[in-house]
Design a protein around this nucleic acid. Structure first.
Lengths: 232, 232
DNA sequence: TTTGTCAGGTTGTCAGACAAGTTACCCACC
DNA sequence: GGTGGGTAACTTGTCTGACAACCTGACAAA
């Protein structure tokens, strides 16, 4: 197995990264004007087209605003138009645990709201994913997808689009973390079974409309998931 | 007061919006190849430079990936590299209430963690913002900034960078919503006083390290805030 | 079957030009 | 002296054409 060879980054990527860092380090202050495209292209030794693409990227991420004829300005609140998990400075150590805390906060609320607001269709969707997981357990297959989908259906049953979308957003960063439960070693340790039992408890609490029980089941499941992953 | 003049959007904005919509509507499937830059420039009737900027924007937002020589491809999980509050399709009605639910979920957890993990410096920072708000109340000034900052210091005291950043992220979308409390009408109704009392209770609970009380105080404050804003 | 070569297509970068819009200064005018 | 308008310089937005770097598929040679 050879390690990936480092492909030289695109020029516009490097320029945008350099600019973003200068903005984050407050070398370019919020509200102040950036150097002109011509100045930047000379300073970085690249063409104006490259600078323009880099700036376009920063515009998309909310770091920069441009006004034709006037110039490019650092946004008043740089980078707060969108939320990213990876802030570029993270070290792996506490990271997962911290993300798990955030995830627990939102999914617990989602479970409680689901208990209060679920429709028959929501329950049917959850049931479907539970059955898919049971099938995966019986056939010793990978239930990661169904696991993922179950959490999404719970979030959808909260009938709060922001919570649903945020759970989905976090979930996509967790697919890898979920796999150990469904791996061969995980199956040998009976992890899928344990997870499934917790899922069933959560489902039952939501189905009977108990907000308190649903929240408790969600907390229990997430904290046990963390343990199964070796966190904490 | 004149209404805003509709400024014609930049071409690259329109192109990127059109492409983004085609990706979201699954007209361009995840993993499939986009038309070439030349084809797009002909189809939209713009130059290739414009298309390139539009694509650069979509790359930054995680909708598209490009490989030199091969082409541009729709990302496997389009648009999930970052979380945005405004999904483009939102209607105002339930919106605020839903965002408040998400905010309550996270800030309640933040308050609980702050009670468990706060340092003396954290408490000092909270105290400082509380005093600033008291001053604003005495002088009938605007305490929005201090209000905002207090919530941020609580989030910081959770010592969870993701929660802190997410609270900040949500907070910036709330500055406007906080103003009614500190407006003239709000002052006349005694709203700042009520909010301040809730802040003090939250601070006291965190200071004495009671997770349960801190969570309860956070829930009470946020639900009362919602009432003061006329939500629910 | 495998390997080397090549041609065509695609993105990445460059250079120069003009259009559209902003800013600051100067100067005539009141 | 203050005001207003005009103008010139500058900046971003867009266009065009060209070449480099790279990928893919097809084909010929071993």
């Amino acid at each position: 197995m050879l390690s990936q060879i480092a492909r030289p980054a695109r020029l516009s990527d490097e320029v945008s990264r350099a600019l973003e860092q200068r903005i984050r380090s407050a070398e370019y202050r919020p509200g102040s004007q950036l150097p002109t495209e011509k100045q930047l292209s000379v300073a970085f030794g690249v063409s104006r087209a490259v600078v323009r693409e880099a700036v376009a990227r920063l515009k998309a991420e909310g770091y920069v605003e441009t006004r034709q004829g006037a110039g490019a300005y650092v946004a008043v609140r740089p980078g707060l138009s969108s939320f990213k998990l990876i802030a570029g400075n993270g070290q792996a150590g506490d990271d997962i645990r911290h993300i798990f805390e955030l995830r627990t906060a939102v999914e617990t609320t989602a479970a409680g709201l689901a208990a209060a607001r679920h429709t028959p269709e929501d329950l049917k969707a959850m049931r479907r994913e539970l059955d898919r997981m049971s099938g995966a357990i019986r056939t010793a297959a990978d239930g990661t997808d169904a696991d993922d989908a179950f959490h999404r259906t719970v979030a959808a049953a909260s009938h709060n689009p922001y919570i649903r979308r945020f759970v989905e957003f976090l979930g996509h960063h967790f697919s890898d973390s979920r796999r150990p439960t469904w791996s061969e070693a995980g199956r040998a340790a009976g992890k899928p079974h344990a997870a499934q039992a917790e899922h069933e408890r959560l489902y039952a609490a939501i189905a009977r409309g108990s907000v308190r029980a649903a929240r408790a089941a969600a907390i229990a499941h997430l904290s046990n998931s963390a343990k199964r992953l070796g966190i904490k």
